[in-house]
Design a protein around this nucleic acid. Structure first.
Lengths: 333, 333
DNA sequence: CTGTTAGCGCTTTCAA
DNA sequence: TTGAAAGCGCTAACAG
């Protein structure tokens, strides 16, 4: 059972390969109804599938878009991917996917790999949007997601980090929490973290950085212990109403874990809220108030802007597109 | 800034394309150190990347594997994907990915799409492993994941569903729960669900099907209400110690949501455990006992068995490979 | 309406 | 140690 080629079909149909090619590409105007029908049947009978490799080579174009994600296990990421895939298949694009696993060097490798696959465009959820590699990749064929570079070179799709947090934390303040803390992985010059922190400072009016509690990133037991200790100090020292805002779902998880070992309960001992919404937040007891971001929509928007750019020729200066968030207020503060 | 081809490099180096090709493919034995060095420098200088499309066509082989997942938003799936990607890139394979979004017809389309991309092999997390499409795809180039067909045609990687549940539920029984319920989406002849149910029956000794509580799948508000009502009846009617085992994380979520609206608390009013482990289960109050499955390992195993098959020529009869699970006992029963 | 033919960028004999 | 040249399966003028 050999693999069929366009030649085989042409022979069977007694036409030239050009005609078959036209059929494949939907140029039916260029053939009689008879041959059209003949080819149609033959293709079904033989279960012939044109080689997309050959097509790509001949057309010198590739209807696939490459995506590099920073961490596929991040639940945010899989929803984004879902949106990307959805939008791509609607536009007839295939997606090939790579995972940097939070490693900046691997991200570079992945991008290079993707480039030699000759993808039409790139969507990147960057580990490090400030990596020098983005100096050499073209804004015409790529868009970034989530994290944005300090010096914007590539169109990026992000959420309204600062504003969303500012409004949310303001609500916490209005609920009487007058001693608020921002729980986050080390800021590390990462836009999502620092932009959310700016929102936090806006809302609280804190000038110094005494109200940020850093969660160790991929810490050892020891680091987590220190984190817990810091929390303990905060809880013991203060008389005022204490509230925590977690910078994302994972930071929130860590916070809760430590609070649990310290035997503190929300909303009695403290109030809490977080960026990101996940299913499980509503079965917590009591359920968690949070900021919902439209991850699926981010994926879709990324694809749309990318394909849009691919179509035009003109180059625009890069800008960031904001996908709005939504407050979900429940009973955690 | 035109795209460089092998010809350009050949010209610049004053050698033939064949030599450059040999260089690219690591056949250094076939050239002098001088030319080797010359080519090396040129490639770096010019940032030349060979076209993998052209290579694939010329070699008539494609170092990419295609994967079709049933639902990318399922957290189980993203961890599997992570394993697949990891193993693939170690073996030098690219992965192109499709999402069926729980739609059997889309799964078929995806597989056909993947085939005409001429992927070397297929990994499928099937919506419906009994779909007729699997009669025509070759076991030599594909492996399945998670759900298995009634009549096995394709090698599949699964967990020890029956056994794991049987042992876990036995433990619940030993803890004094003498009135146990299996909480699941409709069995619908889906292996993961029915195999787990078999384990449940084994452990409990129930002969009839009175102890299964069906969670509506993508239900409307109404259906969820009925589900909640059913739970209420169970809770009110019985004097014995009631325990629930959820067939997966999402069913568990649903169960908890309803229990919450009914104002019942575990482990006081009922005991509970679930298949699948997620991060958030340990910050529940109290934390949840569950069965941990090695999703990453499933992905890796899938890739390994696939690549293994790709290498040999002989065809074996399909079998199912089991990736073991692990009990995580906490305080939910 | 249909066929001829020269590529697309690379690999791979085979000969030099 | 190197090169010439014939493909890989398809597309796209161009000619008829």
């Amino acid at each position: 059972m050999e693999k069929l080629t366009i030649k085989d079909i042409a022979q069977l149909a007694n036409v030239s390969t050009a005609t078959v090619s036209n059929y494949i590409n939907g140029n039916f105007a260029k053939m009689s109804d008879k041959t059209k029908e003949k080819i149609r049947k033959l293709i079904i009978q033989t279960d012939y599938h044109p080689s997309s490799t050959a097509r790509n080579l001949a057309k010198n174009s590739n209807k696939t878009i490459g995506v590099s994600v920073s961490d596929i296990t991040n639940p945010f990421t899989s929803t984004v991917l879902s949106g990307i895939y959805d939008a791509c298949s609607k536009e007839g694009y295939t997606v090939i996917f790579t995972n940097a696993n939070n490693n900046s060097q691997r991200e570079i490798d992945n991008i290079n790999r993707l480039r030699s696959e000759e993808v039409a465009g790139l969507i990147i959820d960057p580990v490090n949007p400030n990596s020098p590699i983005y100096k050499i990749i073209s804004n015409k064929t790529t868009v970034m997601i989530d994290r944005q570079a300090n010096k914007l070179r590539i169109d990026t799709i992000a959420t309204d980090n600062t504003d969303a947090v500012s409004k949310f934390v303001t609500k916490m303040k209005a609920a009487g929490y007058n001693n608020l803390y921002f729980v986050s992985w080390p800021l590390d010059d990462i836009s999502t973290r620092s932009l959310r922190y700016i929102g936090f400072k806006q809302a609280t009016g804190y000038q110094d950085d005494d109200h940020i509690v850093e969660v160790p990133h991929h810490g050892k037991q020891d680091d987590y212990q220190k984190f817990t200790d810091k929390l303990r100090v905060i809880m013991e020292k203060n008389r005022k109403k204490i509230g925590f805002f977690a910078m994302n779902g994972r930071a929130f998880l860590r916070l809760q874990q430590s609070m649990q070992t310290l035997s503190y309960d929300y909303p009695n001992d403290y109030g809490v809220g977080t960026y990101e919404e996940f299913d499980w937040m509503k079965i917590m007891n009591p359920p968690i108030s949070c900021i919902h971001q439209d991850s699926f929509g981010i994926g879709v928007t990324a694809v749309r802007t990318l394909i849009d750019k691919l179509k035009r020729d003109t180059e625009f200066s890069p800008r960031v597109r904001i996908v709005p968030t939504r407050q979900v207020i429940r009973d955690s503060f």
